[in-house]
């Protein structure tokens, strides 16, 4: 079923964006417009001149790898540990982010379940995306997701991440998050209350323990497909294809 998402093309909203862009006379294929990422001549300390290609020199261009699971028993143990230790990277630019705070306070206290917040994507393995994503924020989400270390899981909150919710026909928000990232758990609601969040985490835990959450590998396997979708909607694409 998953594959179908990526092959289905063109929803209405994207057509609207096209139209607007054509009206405004913008070019659609202006990748890498940022000046700092254009190739440039640099003079070294000894006066020699050479070219710097920021994309190549600053960023690793390697594609993500598929990490196959280890032996069954070992993997089961590992998945148990992974499930019981969920380190969250919260992404809350939408309205839903407000519901994430009470989660950690005495009333709901998600710590009980081995859930903690981490301040950096590198150390987190659960990506919580709260609420709608605009085209702009999607880019940041993709980058953060790619910078997380696997195995990693995505939990999407609220209707907006499922189908656009009340922003279904907005010109600058995306409708379905899983066009762009492999989502493991959707928590429906507008907004979902902390109780639902806890339930969602319990679900995620179960899935992890069962070994069903292989989003990282899915992403790596269907990398080109995801990228195509991402690039279609993000027009000022100013980053390497994979953000290590």
């Amino acid at each position: 079923m998953a594959k179908n998402f990526y092959e289905t093309t063109r929803i209405k909203k994207e057509r609207i964006i096209r139209v607007i862009r054509v009206i405004c006379g913008e070019k659609t294929e202006d990748f890498m417009t940022k000046e700092e990422f254009r190739k440039r001549k640099v003079t070294g300390p000894d006066g020699e001149e050479f070219e710097v290609d920021p994309m190549k020199d600053y960023f690793s261009e390697d594609k993500p790898r598929v990490h196959s699971p280890r032996g069954k028993i070992i993997e089961k143990f590992m998945n148990w540990a992974r499930g019981e230790s969920l380190w969250i990277l919260g992404y809350g630019t939408g309205c839903g982010a407000i519901e994430m705070r009470p989660l950690m306070t005495p009333r709901f206290d998600a710590y009980r379940y081995g859930i903690q917040w981490r301040p950096t994507p590198r150390q987190s393995n659960v990506f919580m995306i709260a609420g709608y994503l605009s085209v702009k924020t999607l880019k940041r989400v993709i980058r953060s997701y790619e910078q997380m270390q696997g195995p990693k899981y995505v939990v999407a909150l609220g209707s907006c991440t499922i189908n656009g919710g009340m922003y279904w026909d907005s010109y600058n928000t995306i409708n379905r998050l899983d066009y762009y990232l492999p989502v493991d758990v959707y928590i429906a609601g507008c907004m979902p209350r902390p109780e639902s969040l806890l339930a969602g985490f319990e679900k995620l835990k179960e899935m992890i323990k069962e070994g069903k959450c292989e989003g990282q590998n899915e992403y790596a396997e269907n990398f080109d497909c995801y990228k195509k979708n991402q690039k279609q909607i993000i027009k000022d694409w100013d980053m390497p294809d994979y953000n290590w």
């Binding site: 790898r65 019981e84 206290d109 081995g114 903690q116 393995n125 990282q216």
Partner: peptide, 20 residues
């Protein structure tokens, strides 16, 4: 209520078995 007192062990194991 707070974490389980053995949570540090789990976190440690998890970190050691991260894939990438």
């Amino acid at each position: 209520y707070g974490i389980r007192f053995y949570q540090p062990y789990i976190d440690l194991i998890k970190n050691y078995v991260m894939r990438s």
